[in-house]
Nucleic acid binder design. Structure first.
Lengths: 194, 194
DNA sequence: GTAATTTCTTAAACTAGGTTAAGGATAAAA
DNA sequence: TTTTATCCTTAACCTAGTTTAAGAAATTAC
């Protein structure tokens, strides 16, 4: 049934024949990841592309002072990987960790490239995926420059409405680039305003 | 001779036959852009991919208060486009402007897709290009969170050594996300240190 | 069901970076 | 060559966000 979710995801883009299904399914490996379990450790190369069936992940970097900075979340029906490391084959500077106990489907680089050859339309999905992530990042750069933390928090709540209820505030603060203490202050100010 | 620069760029990746050359060359249009001339205006869709033969460009967004924020520079032998707008066909929120009088080669979306079909290996170059820009952006998000403005300035000088001598400090400040006044302060502090 | 860990909040002191305003230096234009 | 526009710097004051520390609330583990 986990693999049903994956096929359903693909079906949003185009129909899939029985032959195609037979090519896709065996190449994805189902895994259960405990809360706080890591599927990518900084220093390692990101060798798999991960589809989240259930649960939730965060991808983050650690700075010189040991502080963690979230750069992306992924919940049900979303994909996560350090694209930079996955495509270049170089070691990643990021970590990917489960925020909740999760169920994922993973595919290796070799198998993914095999599917790209066999099922040409899959290229489009993954091209669209990276384009979306690119746009998201570009918006973040601009937003970080031009908005206050309060505005960025409100934007985050709106953009990730479902997700934001499941995330501890400390993870949201890390995504926004502020301290949990300051997020607390923002939340109180907003509550006072109405 | 402008188109020689373009072919030379491609030759860094793979050999090009006379037939391929004949497909590529006529699809790029040579243009001269004056200093401060715009090749993309926010609100318009980004319809061309631009190769910089000579000169230098900046891509920037304008925030609510009218402040400009540079998100990318491109000089000789680099490519520039609002990838988000170019690939989705939606209006861009960014501007691309010449910092110096420049010479460019531009290709339309239709022609680029035609070349992608005819010369398959071109796909690779443009995939690599977008991957590089993605990695650059990801690093910027992390760096903006974890480094002081001074460190970001030093990193910028190192990463874009050649370019940084040609750019007015005001443009560098806009890229770093700080005011020109504060950049001045940083520069003085660095000079005092030695 | 109690202990242990993680998360959230408050508040006071602090700092990186912004704002305003003004003068000097370069470079472009005429 | 003079004028005009752009760029760079300085300094005094201001503010958004950090730091430190400590307690309350909520989860998780045993």
């Amino acid at each position: 049934m986990a693999k049903e979710a994956l096929l359903k995801f693909f079906l949003n883009y185009f129909p899939i024949s029985a032959e195609e299904k037979a090519l896709i399914e065996p190449r994805f490996e189902l895994k259960f990841i405990n809360k706080k379990g890591k599927i990518l450790q900084a220093g390692d190369t990101c060798k798999v592309y991960t589809f989240v069936v259930s649960g939730c992940f965060r991808m983050y970097g650690v700075d010189d002072k040991g502080f963690e900075h979230n750069i992306q979340f992924a919940a049900e029906n979303d994909w996560i990987a350090d694209i930079a490391s996955f495509y270049t084959g170089k070691p990643s500077s990021l970590n990917i960790e489960a925020i909740e106990s999760s169920e994922v489907l993973q595919i290796s680089q070799t198998d993914l490239y095999f599917l790209f050859e066999e099922i040409y339309k899959l290229n489009r999905i993954f091209k669209v995926t990276i384009e979306q992530k690119y746009i998201e990042l570009q918006n973040r750069v601009l937003q970080n420059f031009s908005s206050t933390a309060e505005q960025r928090y409100l934007d985050f709540l709106e953009q990730y409405r479902i997700l934001s209820n499941r995330l501890p505030n400390t993870q949201i603060a890390s995504y926004l680039g502020i301290t949990p203490e300051f997020l607390s202050k923002i939340r109180r100010n907003l509550a006072e305003k109405g």
